[in-house]
Amino acid sequence: MKEKLSEEIMALRAAKEFQDGNIINLGAGIPNLCAMFIPEGRNIMFESENGALGYGGIIMVDEFEKVEIQHIDAGGRYFLPKEGMSFFDMGTSLDLMRGGRLDITCLGAYQVSAKGDLANWAIPGDISVGIGGGMDLVYGSKRVIVIMEHVTKNGEFKILNECTYPVTGKKCVSVLVTDIAVIEPTKEGLVLKEYAPGWTAEEIQKLTEPKLLLADDLKEIEL
């Protein structure tokens, strides 16, 4: 069994996409970990859908004494205040998201299709309707970075010709970071840009339903 990238390493790779001055929304789960790996010298403002911009670090378990109930993010974690931080109502927040002010949205997924469709809010058979802000984020953000395991725990494809789960948005994924590859959806199809150390394009293809195109500059993921 070849080694796959850890959650932290996936977050580290995704965070390399963050540019100085970007306004970024991080989804719950692995995307949230990206905040710990901002490339040095880049000043990022994080936005939380419930109405906060430019807040400080997420409070970790061993610093629980610092938790204040009125400083909660969209994923239910608590943050530290920071200079330049602002609070606003959810109407303003959704305008910010839908209106195109986010440079990057980073979120998880159940499935991604060959065309870059994203499915991340519903599991067939569950009566939940977990849409939340996902559709707004993928509609309005300039770039959508998806971070997810390449296949399910049972080894089923998560990168498919067509999503079989309800979609969050069509043709919205800009780049996909998995635990074995970095893939970019293009008009021609999914382009394999980078592979995890020790993995070959053939091995990644076996775990991917659509045919992968190989980037001219295909390379090992730089960390």
Partner: peptide
Amino acid sequence: IIGAAKKFVDDGEDN
């Protein structure tokens, strides 16, 4: 409570 984000990873919950 504080590591809620971590817990959700296992459920595949992303919102």
